[in-house]
């Protein structure tokens, strides 16, 4: 099929193939994410209800004009708590994904290029990855005490080895590439080979991986809170709202389903966008259809 590769321009696997499939879906996902992101950003400025305001008179109300999602066992407005919760959840998601990416890329670059480092680093990463991530996260928070910092640590520690492995894999593959060997022959300093010739190639897979990391971090934060070891109960996060709703689930399922819906929608949207990014950025998979 050499004819095909020479007639086309560079390997931009032009939109035609992946655009029709799921394009509408990922646009919807982006829109949903935008709405949730915006409400997290400006929602607290706009809505009057205080997510922390305890109101014993209005306990466990059904959804109404006054309380859109009803109220919880302490009479707090669930809608306000969900909107404020978006802030916490997205913040934790983005921050921990960013941390994992930075840490993972740095270690992955070094492990991929320097063989001596590789053996030791990858054994340590294998060790961390061998501990089921939820279990590790739960244990970490339990030991260190729950606050934003430890929750972030509990999410980043099990997640960043995946980034290390990804980056290391790309770098290992690139070591054999003729253009990298050409750079070695030109006496290009190692740091420059890493930054100029290798790092840019990790960008596309990292963007894709990053989106999935955000999704998984949002989920992990919720799970931690749900199990009672996450952020302190007074912080409105989706996981905390759900955790508090467990007791009254049989009479007020909305206490779990409203925040659960937002949580699921957010994670779903991020995953859909991640899929679309992979289709767009990874030509190998994009051509397979």
């Amino acid at each position: 099929m050499s004819a095909l590769t020479t007639t086309g321009s560079p390997p931009h696997h032009g939109g035609r193939r992946f655009l029709p499939r799921g394009h509408g879906l990922s646009a919807c996902a982006a829109l949903v994410l935008l709405v949730i992101g915006l409400s997290a950003l400006i929602g607290p400025l706009v809505i009057a209800a205080d997510p922390l305001h305890i109101d014993p008179v209005n306990r466990l109300k059904l959804p109404s004009a006054a309380f859109w999602f009803g109220t919880d066992a302490m009479g707090r407005d669930v809608f306000a708590r969900v909107v404020y919760g978006a802030r916490t959840s997205l913040l934790v998601g983005l921050a921990s994904a960013a941390l994992s990416l930075v840490l993972g890329t740095l270690i992955g670059l070094l492990a991929g290029y320097f063989r001596l480092l590789d053996g030791v680093v990858m054994r340590v990463m294998d060790g961390i990855m061998a501990i089921p991530s939820i279990v590790l996260a739960v244990a970490l928070v339990a030991v260190t005490g729950a606050n934003l910092g430890t929750v972030l640590l509990a999410i980043v520690l099990p997640d960043f080895p995946r980034v290390v492995r990804l980056v290391r894999g790309v770098i290992l593959g690139l070591r054999q590439e003729a253009y990298v060997e050409a750079a070695i022959s030109l006496a290009t300093p190692t740091w420059r080979i890493l930054l100029r010739h290798m790092l840019p190639n990790t960008l596309a897979p990292l963007i894709v991986q990053g989106s999935f990391l955000v999704a998984s971090a949002v989920l992990t934060e919720a799970v931690l809170s749900f199990l009672g070891v996450g952020l302190p109960p007074e912080v409105p996060s989706w996981g905390n709202v759900i955790a508090e709703g467990r007791t009254y689930f049989q009479i007020r399922p909305g206490l779990i389903f409203f925040p659960g819906l937002f949580l699921a929608l957010t994670v779903l949207s991020i995953n859909l966008i991640g899929d679309a990014l992979r289709d767009a950025l990874d030509p190998k998979l994009a051509t397979r259809r």
Binding site: V223, F249, P253, G260, L263, A264, V267, L268
Partner: peptide, 9 residues
């Protein structure tokens, strides 16, 4: 994408 506990409940 749906959290395990949301599926469960």
């Amino acid at each position: 994408s749906t959290p395990v506990f949301v599926v469960g409940y």
